[in-house]
């Protein structure tokens, strides 16, 4: 198991978001986490990279309990994790090349020539050649997402965490991003965790899909198992039918 969450609880003030979440992500697979807005999907991702700490329970990544790591160990682990933010979170005062190079500059002993070459390689991988000197504000939404992906893969991570990678994009760009996610798995062999509302996108990129509801894992299975599930709540989400949500509850 490459990423394991055991009985994770997390509250924000009086809002108990995670209530004993258990989740296992297998090496080399792409797992999509779906669920209603506010279910805590992004919170789960942030626990995996140590941006949030659980109130109780364990988050184990690559055999290491994230909440037990000191800063140095956590930074070392983070070099193995790429995080693609919902709105890319590119540094707007920096060029795209500098954005992609940020993680590389934290690798000891890496020469400038290697950094430049790796930046070009990553931008080529996401089909953004020739935009090194441009700034995030000069790019379209789809290009910004791809630049965020280029930054996330620059350090050759073992894990890629995608937070709503296709939200707000047109259908063609959604397909481009979906193909990139599949390509990252096939060409780089990364383990991917995708948080998404976009069920078609989840079908396209996932080996397994997990549904988060009420702070716990409601269901988890292969794409075919999810499509055939007769869980009313899952069906209501997949088919966009609120009446099924009421029946399920």
């Amino acid at each position: 198991m490459s990423i394991v969450l055991r009985d994770v609880h997390r509250a924000f003030g009086r809002n108990q978001v995670l209530r004993g979440l258990d989740l296992e992500v297998l090496d080399g697979e792409t797992l999509s986490i779906i669920g209603f807005s506010g279910a805590g999907k992004s919170v789960v991702l942030k626990h995996m990279v140590g941006l949030l700490q659980p109130d109780s329970g364990d988050v184990v990544v690559d055999g290491q309990n994230v909440s037990g790591l000191d800063v140095r160990e956590l930074n070392r682990l983070r070099c193995d994790i790429g995080y693609v933010f919902q709105f890319a979170a590119l540094f707007d005062s920096m060029s795209i090349a500098d954005n992609v190079a940020m993680g590389l500059r934290r690798i000891p002993g890496m020469y400038d020539e290697e950094v430049v070459s790796r930046v070009r390689e990553c931008l080529a991988l996401v089909e953004l050649e020739g935009i090194e000197d441009r700034y995030p504000s000069e790019l379209s939404g789809g290009m910004v997402k791809r630049a965020g992906l280029a930054r996330a893969i620059a350090t050759k991570p073992k894990y890629l965490l995608y937070d709503e990678p296709t939200t707000g994009l047109d259908p063609v760009t959604v397909t481009v991003i979906d193909r990139l996610i599949v390509r990252m798995k096939e060409e780089l062999g990364v383990t991917g965790i995708v948080v998404t509302h976009d069920i078609e996108s989840a079908y396209a990129v996932s080996d397994r899909i997990a549904m988060l509801h009420d702070g716990r894992m409601r269901t988890c299975g292969t794409v075919d198992e999810i499509k055939e599930s007769d869980d009313l709540l899952l069906r209501s989400f997949l088919e966009g039918r609120p009446e099924l949500t009421e029946m399920a509850s």
Binding site: V49, L51, V71, R78, I81, A89, M102, G103
Partner: peptide
């Protein structure tokens, strides 16, 4: 602005304090 646009989170994920 960096906080509300998650740029500070991005710094952390890139192993920057």
């Amino acid at each position: 602005t960096m906080r509300v646009t998650e740029q500070i989170d991005a710094l952390e994920t890139l192993a920057y304090d």
